[in-house]
């Protein structure tokens, strides 16, 4: 039997009908709400590709059960900004061309945006440590660091 769960996603209240209330939030965001920001990378909390903001905190939606979310506000990459009006972090990634395949970039931007919101002009080692558990296989790290520093300089 399905349960109806209300979620606050990107500023809108939406309902999803799910068979298992403990289904990871990632599957609801992608399959029930058709969002493409958070991505499936490992489903184990190890890579960060699925990162969203939950009340401003960067969490990995692949291991966040729906039943734990409650009325906390979820923000995904789409909610951060659009190609027409990108968030400063997104604009910085465009300016630095900080993408190769781009599959990890959701996690990088969401983690970095949450980190900058609570850390003023961080040093290079601090940025590296903040992103230390976000994996990129293409080796785009140097551009990602430059993009985060660029965004930090603006906020």
């Amino acid at each position: 039997m399905t349960t109806s769960i209300a979620l606050n996603v990107n500023g809108r209240t939406v309902r999803v009908m799910v068979d298992d209330p403990n289904m990871p939030l990632l599957y609801a965001l992608r399959n029930d709400l058709g969002l493409r920001g958070p991505r499936f990378g490992c489903g184990l909390g190890q890579c960060g590709a699925c990162t969203v903001h939950m009340d401003g905190k960067a969490v990995r939606s692949c291991i966040t059960p729906l039943s734990l979310v409650g009325d906390r506000s979820i923000v995904t990459l789409e909610g951060l900004g659009t190609p027409e009006k990108p968030h400063p972090m997104q604009q910085a990634f465009i300016d630095e061309q900080a993408v190769q395949c781009g599959y990890c970039i959701n996690g990088m931007i969401m983690e970095a945006a949450a980190f900058l919101a609570k850390t003023r002009n961080p040093s290079d080692p601090q940025i590296r440590e903040a992103l230390a558990s976000n994996l990129c296989r293409c080796g785009t790290h140097l551009r990602i660091l430059r993009a985060v520093k660029r965004a930090a300089a603006q906020t």
Partner: peptide, 18 residues
């Protein structure tokens, strides 16, 4: 720790997801 563990356990001792 920051590379292998902060995906779930944050440095500040608070759980990340739960």
């Amino acid at each position: 720790f920051v590379q292998a563990c902060t995906g779930c356990h944050l440095l500040d001792g608070e759980g990340r997801q739960s």
